[in-house]
Design a protein around this nucleic acid. Structure first.
Lengths: 163, 163
DNA sequence: CGAAATATAATTGTACACAATTGAATTGTA
DNA sequence: TACAATTCAATTGTGTACAATTATATTTCG
């Protein structure tokens, strides 16, 4: 395979991920509209339905989002009456996010949501599984790469600059 | 496979696409920084490097983006001196987007960009190809599904409501 | 203990993304 | 030719994303 077509492929893949992501978000929209949720908000609900009372940073670790994204989003969800944000008494730095009865009750209504997406995707289970594996690998490899060195710097600093 | 684990898988896939897309955008950032481009802007440049002078809607068809996204983005790119927006003389509705010399010259410098991403992804070529195929299929199937019926209504209306 | 380092969420500013609408230009057609 | 329908880009308003910074609380360590 020539170098140029390899690079073309790379551009195609990244664009395919990018545009598939936007399309998926749009496809969720009519289904989530009845629940008054956006897709990112739905993801937060999935986290909380699994374990209620998570802190903002824990939700962020699950979804790979930071407080700059989550704080305003959680405030919107709080104003919708789905969650409550309560500063932790043990550690005043943390804010724990708790489901309200309304937020809990949404779970049953949301249970039917993934079905339509699953059908509309038109993929076989095995295809989806390999897709899942590949995408996770890419995310993990990119996150580990030297390209992303934000707050992920648990390891040694990249260049040892000691300012 | 149980229904619940199938729906879990669906949630996982969509989230995998979503978070991989965000991670890819972030991984491009340090590479594109030298070119003063964001990832969506880079995609526009790829389109224009292929064929200069495309209209806004043609660019939108290539990238699956609408004027609400493209118009402000193209204005930013124009203010950076990368492109020029000129209203077409033949059809005054259209705005054609032309590369400036600066925009054209960026092409060579951008040629090395995909390499690092390709390496950092840690995937084999065959894996990337099958990933590409699956993602395109999902996007196409979702776009064809009744879930997305925005301006794509070239076919018959979904329910025959004649207002 | 107490200062420095760290952790945590919030804030600020920039850039998408898109639904819905608007306004202008073109096309179709009676 | 008129005029309704369509096309096209722009606009408006809402909601993410995220880098960079700030403010506060906690932990670490001399």
């Amino acid at each position: 395979m020539s170098t140029s077509s390899l690079l073309d492929l790379e551009n195609q893949i990244c664009f395919a991920v990018y545009s598939a992501s936007l399309t998926i978000t749009k496809a969720y929209q009519p289904l989530l509209k009845a629940l008054e949720l956006t897709y990112p908000q739905y993801l937060v609900m999935l986290v909380l339905w699994q374990t209620d009372g998570r802190s903002v940073s824990e939700i962020g670790q699950n979804l790979f989002l930071d407080s700059g994204t989550l704080t305003p989003m959680l405030k919107r969800m709080e104003s919708l009456g789905l969650i409550e944000r309560r500063r932790s008494t043990e550690d005043e730095r943390q804010v724990n996010v708790h489901l309200t009865p309304k937020g809990r009750s949404l779970r049953k209504r949301a249970a039917t949501v993934p079905e339509d997406l699953l059908c509309a995707s038109g993929c076989s289970v095995s295809e989806l599984k390999s897709l899942n594996t590949s995408l996770r690998k890419i995310r993990e490899n990119l996150a580990k790469s030297e390209l992303l060195d934000r707050q992920t710097s648990k390891g040694t600093q990249p260049k040892g600059k000691k300012t």
